[in-house]
Design a protein around this nucleic acid. Structure first.
Lengths: 193, 193, 193, 193
DNA sequence: AAATAAGCGAGACGGTACGTCGGGTCTTTAA
DNA sequence: TTAAAGACCCGACGTACCGTCTCGCTTATTT
């Protein structure tokens, strides 16, 4: 096994330039068209410098995406859980409707054939968001707004899964306006009252 | 411009061999590792023969997948919509838990960067299933089992979206046993009663 | 083992362009500075096409050199062996004093670390010349001009070895004018008479 | 421009370790496979320390070779010049038939594309030997054993050139046993008596 | 003895070229 | 007239070393 390089010696300027170049290229040319070679050239960096710190272009772009979007802290809390979810869903739809969404989709695509990337994508990107929402939902449960017998982890999945799924399959265009209605369906159920 | 080839002249033996080889290779080596070259070699066919009839390896594999799974006709109808959904969900989970699931995930992956493939995947694979379920749900609405004010197309998405999503992101392993519970959450809603 | 490609299918235009480009680059930039990549680019050819037919840049350049110098047939035969050798030695010195000499030296250099190339260089380039000279010397032996108890193969080596050696080591510049004298030393020996 | 480093400050331990490692690696893996990086690693030394004192791997190995073989003083002098040459030729063949020969050949190879190295190789390795032999031959001339009208420098070349040449081209394996015969050819000439 | 300068091990850096893979196109051969 | 076989051009891969460049850490004077 190759000796792992020492992260302390990492050149800050190069590191930044790589992340910036990666994101810019992905936004400009589309995730699939980006190559490690092009990132290196755009960042004014040797290819080896990229391979020293990341195993693949996907890993670079994932870090770049995380670096750009910053630490997640966007769970709204107005006391009205339905409204909060609707607003958040709108936010997801809007955020992922831009170039960042295309990048995210590219990462998910690569993750299908790359378990290590799948794990990173989960741990570094999805889970923080899911965790934050579990906390918010726990609070709503405590406030009596939501059923106590449903694991909040499952709730997160039921609430946001369909959105992510539609982004990936593109069954229908996503409309940020009707999130309120959809949240209503989920909270009140599909059965007649 | 080259004249479009006449599909009638398509060599049946080659066609079969290609589809079979594609699926076998995908199952054995994983979707991402399959190449057009390998399919051609395994099928005892020239590369050109593949490119004459399909635009990409993904298109071949999609047709092979459709060919293998056959026309969809699997919506159960016992009169109890909750039970039917639960059974179907189990079926999806089980089917996509095998090698076919890996192939499906690979197709979704490629579709992220290939709009034509995305369209084919939707039209040839997903939509027939969705349509069949819309019909079943329409019937349940008529029977008073489900709300009439929710488009059944939306229902399908809320019911199955989270499953497909979890398959793609791999947040948690899918357990076919608790589908009943999850259907209950969706039908009765996440609010306390 | 990789299946050997079929030489009959070799593209003549590419083949020519590769040999021409190789020799031109070697003459212009010096043997050591030539790269397979540059040859491919200059020939308007894919790198793979070079690697399909030759194992290394050295092999390409050796063939190009042979192709350029053509079949060897330059042994003079005036009936006077001493004069013939002197003329030939001059020819060698002059030929290898040009760009071709630099290329030849580069090939010998690479051959030091590449036994396969060494063998090719011997068989395809040196041996035909040596053989032709052995024949000429055999004739001189028969004519009583040279000792019969010395293998002509050895004679060739004693006659031309020092020239090739000096080209490689560069001990002193080679002067085509004093070849007659040197031949005299070899034919009459270094002992006083 | 960087000030030239002061050789007095050179770390003796490192210097030794570099020369030893260089020679060992060259003997073990073959001259061509040795890299500066590998020498540095094997010597437990920073790459820069090598580049501070030598311009290339070839220069290191040349010094290592000289260091190992020590100052040349091996010209035999029994009074019989023919026998002395034959013995010396045997010595050359034997010495260069070992790993040292491979290293010498590697140096000659690199020298083809590196005039500075060529000069060093000549001055530091070949010339001392040639000079010593010129002295020996001068003595033989004075003793009437050799012609006085042939420059001894030329004699050295005629005597040893073919051996070095054969080592580099590998036309035939070198046999230390028949040196006497070959010396006879050179001393008495190739003409019939 | 402290200050100071150099050499030093370590190893990251920008580069160049390597030899390989596979994409999608084009050509040849044989049925 | 098809299609197998496979060569072709091309772009990117991930690797190996090059020679240069910082980093702290010895050492070895030089005050």
């Amino acid at each position: 096994m190759a000796p792992a390089p020492n992260p302390d010696l990492r050149n800050q300027r190069s590191h930044r330039a790589i992340l910036d170049a990666a994101l810019e290229l992905a936004a400009r040319d589309g995730y699939a068209k980006v190559t490690v070679e092009a990132i290196a050239a755009a960042a004014g960096v040797g290819k080896q410098t990229i391979y020293r710190w990341w195993p693949s272009k996907a890993a670079v772009i994932l870090e770049a995406l995380n670096d750009r979007t910053g630490p997640f802290s966007g769970v709204p809390d107005t006391g009205d859980i339905a409204a909060d979810i609707a607003v958040a869903a709108q936010g997801v739809i809007e955020a992922l409707g831009t170039g960042l969404g295309t990048i995210w989709r590219g990462l998910v695509a690569d993750a299908q054939g790359d378990p290590r990337l799948a794990e990173s994508l989960l741990n570094d990107f999805m889970e923080p968001r899911n965790k934050a929402w579990q906390d918010r939902l726990d609070k709503a449960v405590a406030a009596g707004e939501l059923r106590a017998d449903v694991p909040t982890r499952t709730m997160v999945e039921l609430l946001f899964g369909p959105i992510y799924y539609r982004l990936l399959l593109g069954t229908d265009p996503l409309d940020p306006d009707n999130t309120t209605t959809r949240v209503d369906y989920l909270l009140n159920g599909l059965r007649p009252h």
